[in-house]
């Protein structure tokens, strides 16, 4: 089994230690050095037992990618916490820095300010948040990826790409049977006879296509605007259009790019994830369970969140 401490062990094996005072100092430095990746790993490189990461097989060269195939169990190639963190996408966290400011429209900025997240630079104590998620309301897409990204399992059929997500055991269907996205999700006018009109959905409505043998692009719309884009309270409107690009780099890797296109709330499309690398895992890898449980949340609020914020 892979362990987060394997790196530490291998480094320790190369250590040579002197004697007396110098040994003490060298040992202290060694311990701190060894501790360093372990601490980093707790956020930047959180491992799932049994998963394989690029660092574990650095000497192994990957083969050619399969044609038109996304199927498999996927984990962040560089470990958990890579690409996405609690205050948003790693490249553009909600930290108040001008370079990370999203291109809000006035309406979008107002929605952002009205959201009270527990992460990011506009954060409030848990007891004062209006985040729909802690109470176990649907997290929806794309927040399932832009916040609670963990492993994903992708299944392919003749007409669908189905993505299974760890958090709350949710899944999405991306239709690949040639249907189009509705121009107006409220009045879809489907080409396919008998298809029900899609109401606004927490998970949107998704269609996808192969643009070449190794690149799959999915478009989604029809979103319920009660969900957030991420944990930092970035908002979206009912005009949200999400573009996902999945690119098979080689036999072991998949890159995911997510672009947010929401003309009501943002003046231009922006890239939330840019070629985030995933690594194909063993088909027998166990995906952990993680559920939002209302009764557990209530107990957490009663024992911790409320007294921590002086909320009765």
């Amino acid at each position: 089994m892979n362990s987060g401490f394997g790196i530490r062990d291998s480094r320790f094996g190369r250590m040579s230690v002197g004697s007396g005072f110098s040994r003490t100092i060298v040992t202290a430095i060694a311990l701190l050095t060894l501790l360093s990746p372990a601490i980093r790993g707790q956020q930047g490189f959180r491992r799932t037992p049994g998963a394989v990461y690029d660092v574990d097989v650095a000497d192994k060269k990957s083969g050619a990618p399969p044609r038109r195939d996304l199927s498999g169990i996927w984990e962040f190639a560089k470990g958990g916490g890579e690409g996405i963190q609690a205050d948003g996408a790693k490249a553009i966290p909600s930290d108040g820095k001008p370079e990370h400011e999203l291109p809000f429209t006035p309406e979008g900025r107002k929605a952002f300010i009205n959201n009270k997240p527990t992460y990011g630079f506009t954060q409030v104590p848990s007891a004062l948040t209006n985040d729909p998620m802690p109470g176990c309301d649907p997290q929806g897409f794309p927040r399932i990826v832009l916040h609670n990204a963990h492993h994903e399992q992708i299944l392919q059929t003749a007409t669908q790409v189905v993505i299974l997500y760890q958090f709350n055991k949710k899944w999405r269907v991306i239709w690949t049977d040639g249907r189009k996205l509705p121009a107006n999700p409220e009045v879809p006018g489907w080409d396919i006879k008998g298809s029900p009109p899609p109401e606004a959905r927490f998970w949107g409505y998704s269609v996808g296509r192969w643009v070449d043998d190794y690149t799959f692009v999915a478009d989604s719309n029809g979103f319920d605007d009660r969900t957030w884009l991420d944990n930092a309270g970035r908002p979206h409107s009912d005009a949200l259009h999400v573009i996902e690009t999945y690119h098979r780099v080689d036999a072991d890797h998949l890159e995911k790019t997510i672009t947010i296109d929401d003309p009501k709330f943002y003046t231009r499309p922006w890239v939330a994830l840019d070629k985030l690398p995933y690594r194909l895992q063993s088909p027998s890898l166990e995906i952990p369970e993680q559920e939002c449980v209302p009764s557990e949340t209530a107990k957490y609020n009663q024992l911790f969140a409320n007294p921590a914020a002086d909320v009765k």
């Binding site: 005072f21 100092i25 430095i29 701190l32 501790l35 609690a86 527990t118 848990s126 914020a309």
Partner: peptide, 28 residues
């Protein structure tokens, strides 16, 4: 020498904390 080594060691700790948790911090 000792001071330098301690400084190096401290630097390692600081670096290791650079990716500190982004867990809800408001109440702590």
């Amino acid at each position: 020498m000792r001071r330098m080594l301690v400084a190096v060691a401290s630097g390692v700790v600081l670096l290791s904390c650079a990716l500190a948790a982004h867990h809800a911090n408001a109440v702590f």
